[in-house]
Amino acid sequence: MMQPTLLQSVDLSARKALPAALTLLLMLFALTPTNLPGLSPVMPMFPLMSVYFWSIYRPELLSYGAVFSLGLLEDLLTATPIGSTALVFLVTQWVVLRQQKFFNAKPFVVTWFAFVFVAAGAALIRWIAVGLVEDSGFTPAGPLFASYLITIALYPLVGWLLAKTQAKLMGHL
């Protein structure tokens, strides 16, 4: 086999970093002011969708370390208790990896259905973690539930976009 040129290897590592990079992009996207009335308090958990998606389809390209760092970054950026989102991302990925056999070659609808449960677990863990750490206690369940519903409703759209990106840029990896 021919040795890859420098450009090729840079290109390859850039493609391999895409899952983490796209999760980061979704995180920043969630932070951009939308100017849509009423959306901010129930902002969906975009990075969670990305972590879930890549854990199913490309687990080898999104390590525990990467997921941990992304969660940490989210905690620092959104001023939530540091470590809480990292914990949620790690557990999400762990659950998906444990069920790799279940997810194997399943249609998208099935992964969406599974996401309904995974996202519920993720929201619950974060609610408990944040509530225990913060002095102000547990946040009301109303906005959290609304945010959860929007998250599972938007998953097909985000998952479709990520799937397209994967097919286009990472098909041969």
Binding site: I82, G83, L87
Partner: peptide
């Protein structure tokens, strides 16, 4: 091993965040 130790780190961070707010704030 990586998973378990990282989970441990998140719990440690949550405790640190509660105790030492100055350090966390600087990072933020």
């Amino acid at each position: 091993f990586a998973f378990l130790s990282l989970i441990g780190v998140t719990f440690a961070l949550m405790l640190i965040g509660k105790a030492d707010t100055v350090l966390v704030e600087r990072a933020r």
